[in-house]
Computed example of a mutant assay.
Amino acid sequence: MYRIGELAKQCEVKADTLRFYEKHGLLTPSSRSDSGYRLYNDNDVERLRFILRAKAVGFTLAEITELLSIELDKSNWACADVKGLVDSKLAYVNERITELNHFQVSLQRLSDACCGGPESAEHCSILEALESNTDNIKCENHAHDHDASEYTKNCQSKG
C-alpha cells in the first residue's frame, strides 16, 4: 500500500494532482488508514499510469473517464469503440493544427508588415490591419533602422 506522497513520488506527479484526479472521479484510494490517510494499491498505481499516459497523448479528463470506463468493462466494448474515440480526437487535433497554422501565417504577415520602430503607433500597420475589414496588410512606409532596399523588397513580396 502506498500513501499519497509515495504514489505521487513513484509516478512523478504532485500529491495535489492525485487529489485533483480523485475530486474528478478518475482515481479513488483503495482504502484509508486508521488516521485517515489515503492508501493506494498496485491496481491504483496502474490506473494512475493509465491516466497519465492518456493525458500525455492529449485526452481530456472527460475522455479519460470514458476510456477508463471502457478499460474496466472491456468485454462489453469493441475495439472499434476505442478506435472511434482515438480517431475523433485525432480529427480534432488535425483541425486545431490547421487553425494554428492559419494563425501562424496571419501573425507572421502582421509582424512582417510592421517596421517595429520607435515611432508613434498612430499609423501602425498592425493596428490598421486589425481595424480594417480587409485581409490586405500594408507595409509601413518608414524604413528606419532597416536596409531600405531589403525592407521595400519584403513589403512588395507581401502584396
Score class of each variant (00 low, 15 high):
Lys14Phe: 05
Asp87Ala: 10
Glu150Tyr: 04
Ile70Glu: 02
Arg32Asn: 09
Leu26Val: 03
Leu90Cys: 06
Asp135Pro: 11
Ser69His: 13
Thr28Cys: 11
Leu110Ser: 03
Tyr151His: 08
Glu128Lys: 15
Gln108Trp: 03
Ser30Pro: 05
Phe103Tyr: 14
Phe103His: 12
Tyr21Arg: 06
Phe50Ser: 10
Leu48Ile: 09
Pro118Phe: 12
Cys124Glu: 07
Gly25Ile: 06
Leu100Cys: 07
Asp44Ile: 10
Glu119Gly: 05
Arg109His: 09
Thr28Leu: 14
Glu12Asn: 15
Leu68His: 04
Leu27Phe: 07
Ala148Gln: 12
Ala56Val: 00
Ile70Asp: 04
Thr152Pro: 00
Cys115Phe: 01
Leu72Gln: 13
Pro29Gly: 09
Glu131His: 12
Leu27Ser: 06
Ala91Ile: 09
Arg96Gln: 15
Leu130Gln: 15
Ala54Arg: 05
Leu67Pro: 02
Ser157Met: 08
Glu66Ile: 08
Ser88Ala: 13
Glu63Arg: 05
Asn101Met: 09
Ser35Val: 08
Ala8Arg: 00
Ile51Trp: 02
Asn101Leu: 12
Glu6Tyr: 02
Arg19Leu: 05
Asp147Phe: 00
Ser88Asn: 14
Ala143Gly: 03
Gln104Thr: 12
Ala121Glu: 13
Phe20Ser: 09
Ser33Pro: 09
Ala113Asn: 01
Cys79Gly: 00
Arg109Val: 01
Leu27Tyr: 06
Ser157Pro: 00
Val57Tyr: 01
Asp81Arg: 06
Glu122Ser: 15
Leu127Trp: 06
Ser88Pro: 00
Leu68Pro: 02
Glu66Cys: 10
Ser69Gly: 01
Arg53Val: 09
Arg53His: 11
Glu6Ser: 05
Arg32Glu: 09
Asp44Arg: 04
His24Trp: 09
Ser120Thr: 13
Asp145Val: 04
Phe103Trp: 13
Glu63Gln: 11
Ser111Asp: 10
Leu52Met: 07
Gly58Cys: 02
Glu46Pro: 00
Leu7His: 01
Asp42Pro: 07
Leu26Cys: 06
Ser33Ala: 14
Ala56Met: 01
Val105Ala: 11
Asn154Arg: 15
Asp44Glu: 10
Glu140Ile: 08
Cys114Tyr: 00
Pro29Asn: 10
Ser31Gly: 12
Glu99Asn: 11
Leu7Val: 04
Ala8Met: 01
Ser111Val: 13
Gly5Ile: 12
Tyr40Gln: 03
Arg3Tyr: 10
Leu107Ala: 13
Thr28Met: 14
Leu110Phe: 06
